[in-house]
Amino acid sequence: MSFLEIDDVHKAYGHHEVLKGVSLNVERHEVVCLIGASGSGKSTLLRCVNALEEIQGGAIRIDGDTVTGAGVDLNVLRRDVGIVFQSYNLFPHMSVLENIMLAPTRVGGMAKKAARERTMTLLESVGMQDKAKAYPDMLSGGQQQRVAIVRALAMQPRVMLLDEITAALDPELVGDVLEIVRELAHGGLTMLLATHEMGFAKEVASQVCFLDNGSILERGSAQQIFEDPKEPRTQQFLSRVVKSGRL
């Protein structure tokens, strides 16, 4: 039994089918990368895992617990599953410190003082301790995304979902953010990430899945997918990525 089991998940918006039976197992401490064109269903799959989207078929299990369907306490599930979004989604009316402390204090029942201390430690580890009092609008995209990662980490999730977290960043800011993700991967955090950073996927992923049109067309080790893709669609996708200078 795997830690995170995605079992034949179907998702549709009205008549438009976005996920057509996706199955994927993620082991503890594993880093799985989802690649594929925009609209292939990567983001939707991640949003289904922490129930931001309702699924119409199949099941998702975390550590043996089914977390989809009726009667699931979603708020408890989401404490275990952190997500970081492409557009950061920080709360603009709260300072960095307040953004990060909100969930641990209001949901996790942590004392304010302890939460503040841990927040400061976390901020320090991403080099942002001097920005604790700043508001999101005053920060660069890279800084905002680092805060968003810390905000998700502050709830001590068992799985992290990263949804194209560098796609909206200036090229020179991407490195800082990826460095943090690399550190999390080495630290043994289980992660499922959708990304267009092929080089990074190659480096950290223990498993790479190529999504096309709502299903996983091909999966395997990073080496296997990038060096020797079997499916013609995967080959076409990767050759286009190479042509655009992304790999």
Partner: peptide, 21 residues
Amino acid sequence: PSQSAAARSLGLSYSLTLRTV
């Protein structure tokens, strides 16, 4: 809606999301 999604993804309940975010 991304604000609500961010709050809910952190485990905040509907009413807490409403009140704080």
